[in-house]
Design a protein around this nucleic acid. Structure first.
Lengths: 251, 251
DNA sequence: AAGTGTGAACAGCTTCACAGCC
DNA sequence: GGCTGTGAAGCTGTTCACACTT
């Protein structure tokens, strides 16, 4: 067994016709999502413009990093002033593909899955959960927030019908690969994996993983005394510390 | 498929006296946790030794990366043979600080928090949840899996008493910073943050973040067509595959 | 005066390639 | 012969520093 040695990070591959010239680094994409959230909070707070310094600080990154990130998507700042909150927000939404909702399918409605299904945050933010699957006879047929839980074997049929573009796997590890294969067969090319296993997928499928056990173990490592300390993020930024206290975010 | 990485880096800072000579890169620590899981599976399967090639492939990384990672913690391989599964497993547990349990406090027992509290996986893996907190009067006083939910204001008193070393924040964004400050005041130096906000903490506190909205947005970006495609991991590794497993879903 | 955009320096992590040991 | 351990090379992403704009 072996595999394609692919090894890179950002790919030069241009899959679609994006209005952007070059490829955007993965690390940058992650931060763009963070900036977008902060911009939303700033907008609610009534701010019209923000400086790179301020936006960076609220996002937990270095201001040079932020400016470079934004330079990847074009130039939307005003020298001497900063960025227009609303304009930048819309631009980021467009780049991230949030201008139209992405239907999500959730497989595995056990403990964690059930919580994810009921987690209102998704639907409101452009990620409506439109399909639920499980194998447990007790669950299949029941409904959660108005969505019926169907049997995993229906994935191939139900996902396309529901317009699903993103799949979330919250099953036990042993089942994850199989479920993943079914999602892929159903045309789902983006998967968020909560199961503690490495998923093998074709080259045109994107998998992101959230592994709670690993997160805790990394923290344990730091508790044990080794390692430096800083604000890392799984998803988040680099380091940077801030100052303790002050600066409260609006939300 | 491929994949890059992550989001964080490492710090040179040496916080404690570890038996290891140099500092271990953050990226390496994350992968060590992954290797440990795979070793556990191999051990259950009866394997005595593994080659770097096999372990790497099952973990989704390049074999050279794996060997370099292990070289950071000393030399436990046998040239011409591979690694002893059990020995390496114990060594990794030791390095990650898993030889004694880390008590976890969970703040925010709403939707997600409740699922995390009930998620049996933690206690069994050395991370017993020993304290729960919330502000909702409906929840305070109730018990989940035998643990009483206490009011957030008791954090400072209850955490030290329960021997808490790791805190998990699953509150709404607006409350997160305040809760974080209280955990820090209670002596908790390692925090796993599920709230969508950047937490400001003193230099000696480690924060890791899990942001579901960001994960979905990054996936949306790929659905939208930009970006290369690969197996990324929030937490996870690089590439390479494992084998397709059979097994049925159990939930 | 203030703040963006960016070339260039820097740092860290990954991969190669091979010497050395079993 | 097979496989680990590791110096060296290659990359990617981050940070600096400053020219340029408003």
């Amino acid at each position: 067994m072996t595999l394609p040695p692919q090894a890179d990070s950002s790919r030069p591959t241009e899959a679609g016709a994006a209005p952007v010239g070059k490829a955007i680094p993965e690390a940058t994409v992650v931060r763009l999502a963070v900036y977008l959230r902060v911009l939303g909070q700033l907008g609610e707070g009534g701010a019209e413009t923000v400086s790179s310094e301020e936006l960076a600080s609220l996002s937990g990154v270095n201001s040079a990093t932020l400016r470079k990130d934004l330079s990847h998507i074009g130039t939307y700042g005003i020298r001497g002033v900063g960025y227009e909150v609303a304009a930048l927000q819309h631009e980021l939404e467009r780049v991230l593909g949030l201008d139209h909702p992405q239907a999500v399918a959730l497989v595995g409605v056990g403990n964690l899955g059930h919580a994810l299904a009921g987690y209102g945050g998704f639907g409101g933010r452009g990620f409506p959960v439109t399909a639920l699957f499980d194998v447990d006879p007790e669950l299949v047929g029941s409904t959660i927030d108005g969505i019926e839980v169907r049997h995993v074997r229906d994935i191939a049929a139900a996902c396309p019908a529901a317009g699903v573009t993103i799949g979330m796997i919250a099953t036990p590890a042993q089942a994850a690969q199989q479920v993943c294969d079914q999602l892929v067969a159903a045309g789902v090319h983006s998967i968020l994996n909560f199961a503690p296993t490495f998923l093998q997928v074709p080259d045109d499928v994107e998998v992101r993983k959230v592994d709670l056990a690993v997160e805790l173990q990394v923290l344990a490592f730091h508790v044990a005394g080794r390692g430096g300390i800083s604000e890392h993020g799984t998803t988040s930024p680099r380091v940077v510390h801030g100052r303790n206290g002050s600066a409260v975010v609006a939300t």
